[in-house]
Computed example of a mutant assay.
Amino acid sequence: MLLCITPAESPVLCPGLRTEGTLWFTDLTVPDPTFILPLSVGLINLIMLEMQFKIQSPTKLQKVAKNVWRGTTVILIPIAAIVPCSMCFYWACSSLFTFAQFLLLRDSRVRSALGMPK
């Protein structure tokens, strides 16, 4: 016999996660009901991917790699939709920080200030 536990009955290591959320995701132990966080994770990663793979004449292997990463990004959205908001929020913040870092390090003034090659 399987024991079914509803999210409200499941044990939580940190009970504050149920009440310390923000904006539309007040309960960090359940998935985002609006899909805003999962879609933002996928969108940020897809934009970053497209910006990184801007190659004038890509080889066949580079085209395949880009399509594989696109597929991975699309698969990430339903995965992010079923994990608790706390994980999805972490992924969104991490992706946003990585994207900001990517944009910052593309700037030639920042690269020269840091002593990085062009």
Results as ranks from 00 to 15, higher is better:
Lys54Val: 13
Met87Glu: 07
Cys4Asp: 13
Tyr90Ser: 09
Cys93Glu: 13
Lys63Gln: 15
Ala92Pro: 03
Leu49Lys: 12
Lys118Ile: 00
Val110His: 02
Lys54Phe: 05
Ala81Met: 01
Pro84Asn: 13
Leu23Ala: 08
Lys66Ala: 08
Val64Asn: 08
Leu17Met: 13
Lys66Glu: 12
Gln52Phe: 11
Ser40Trp: 07
Ile5Gln: 14
Ala81Pro: 01
Pro11Tyr: 13
Leu103His: 12
Gln52Pro: 01
Pro117Gln: 09
Leu2Ile: 09
Val30Ile: 15
Asn45Thr: 05
Cys14Phe: 05
Leu39Ser: 05
Ile47Lys: 03
Leu17Phe: 02
Thr59Asn: 06
Thr22Lys: 08
Ile77Pro: 02
Ser94Asn: 10
Leu13Val: 03
Thr6Met: 15
Pro7Trp: 01
Leu104Val: 08
Val68Tyr: 02
Leu28Tyr: 06
Met51Ile: 03
Leu23Ser: 10
Leu43Ala: 04
Leu3Ile: 14
Val83Ser: 11
Val68Arg: 15
Leu104Trp: 14
Ser95Asn: 14
Leu3Glu: 14
Ile44Tyr: 01
Thr19Glu: 10
Leu76Asp: 04
Leu23Glu: 11
Ile82Thr: 06
Cys4Met: 03
Ser108Phe: 10
Leu23Gly: 08
Pro15Tyr: 03
Cys93Thr: 05
Ala113Cys: 07
Pro31Lys: 02
Ala81Leu: 03
Val64Glu: 12
Ala81Asn: 02
Leu114Glu: 03
Cys14His: 11
Ile55Phe: 14
Gly115Tyr: 07
Met51Ser: 15
Leu96Pro: 10
Ser57Pro: 05
Gly71Gln: 05
Val83Trp: 09
Ser57Phe: 05
Gln101Asp: 06
Phe35Ile: 05
Ile55Leu: 11
Leu39Asn: 07
Ile82Lys: 13
Met48Ser: 12
Arg111Ile: 09
Leu43Asp: 02
Leu43Cys: 04
Asn45Pro: 06
Val30Pro: 03
Pro38Asp: 00
Val30Ser: 13
Pro58Val: 00
Ala8Ile: 11
Ala8Pro: 01
Phe35Ala: 11
Ile77Asp: 06
Val30Glu: 07
Leu2Tyr: 11
Leu39His: 14
Glu20Pro: 00
Ser95Tyr: 08
Glu9His: 04
Cys93Trp: 07
Asp32Thr: 02
Lys118Gln: 10
Leu43Val: 09
Phe97Cys: 04
Val74Cys: 07
Thr26Asp: 14
Leu23Asn: 06
Pro78Thr: 08
Leu3Gly: 11
Thr98Glu: 11
Leu43Glu: 05
Phe89Gln: 00
Pro31Asn: 04
Phe25Asn: 15
Leu76Arg: 00
Leu104Pro: 10
Leu2Thr: 03
Leu96Met: 07
Ser57Asn: 12
Leu28Lys: 00
Glu50Leu: 14
Lys118Tyr: 08
Trp91Cys: 04
Glu9Arg: 02
Leu76Thr: 07
Ile44Cys: 08
Gln62Ile: 01
Leu13Thr: 04
Lys54Pro: 01
Lys60Ser: 14
Thr59Lys: 01
Ala113Val: 06
Ile5Met: 13
Ala8Lys: 01
Ala80Cys: 13
Thr72Asn: 09
Ala8Phe: 05
Glu20Phe: 10
Phe53Met: 10
Phe89Cys: 06
Pro15Ser: 11
